[in-house]
């Protein structure tokens, strides 16, 4: 335990440009998100994630934003447990009919001003599930959507880029 902790202190943090496929891109997005977040939001934006019937692929990549490579919290962007604490609803899935009421109630519980971000092909227009008896055609069929982040699923870098886009859009309504 002590050795693991000590190494953690002495090693370079992973969230510095990792020698990975998208290091340059990640760094650019990360810096831009940081600046815009400070300017618009005083370094703080609380995100509530809602799975409205996704296949869970989108959730895996959203969760990855918290790992040491992306470390979302360094930008002042953080996931909160209750919609009552949230500025942004990050919604995945085509919106199944069985989740429609819960999604609406979560949105109603979120204080204004609030933004809705639809994540993934499903949330955009139903994706592969468009036309099913059990699904809406995406989040826009139920809620006003401010931003769509494409991908199936979007990669963590796509998600970071999308959140940057949101910060640019986010003059309070």
């Amino acid at each position: 335990m002590r050795r693991t902790l000590l190494e953690g202190l002495l090693h370079r943090p992973l969230s510095e440009p990792p020698p990975a496929l998208d290091a340059a891109e990640l760094e650019a997005v990360a810096q831009a998100v940081g600046v815009a977040a400070r300017a618009r939001l005083g370094r703080s934006l609380s995100i509530r994630e809602i799975d409205a019937g996704s296949c869970n692929g989108c959730e895996l990549e959203i969760v990855a934003l918290n790992n040491a490579f992306y470390d979302l919290e360094r930008f002042g962007l953080r996931f909160v447990a209750s919609p009552r604490h949230a500025d942004v609803l990050l919604v995945t899935g085509p919106v199944t009919h069985n989740m429609r009421a819960a999604l609406l109630r979560t949105w109603e519980a979120t204080p204004d001003p609030k933004w809705v971000v639809a994540v993934g092909a499903c949330a955009h227009d139903g994706g592969e599930f468009a036309g099913s008896y059990a699904c809406e055609r995406g989040v826009g069929a139920v809620l006003p959507v401010d931003l769509f982040i494409p991908g199936c699923p979007p990669t963590p870098v796509d998600l970071l880029k999308g959140l940057l886009g949101l910060l640019k859009l986010s003059a309070p309504r």
């Binding site: 989740m99 592969e128 599930f129 059990a134």
Partner: peptide, 11 residues
């Protein structure tokens, strides 16, 4: 459960 039922088998 059933909240994420998407009707996959019908599709």
């Amino acid at each position: 459960f059933g909240y994420t039922h998407k009707g996959t088998e019908a599709l």
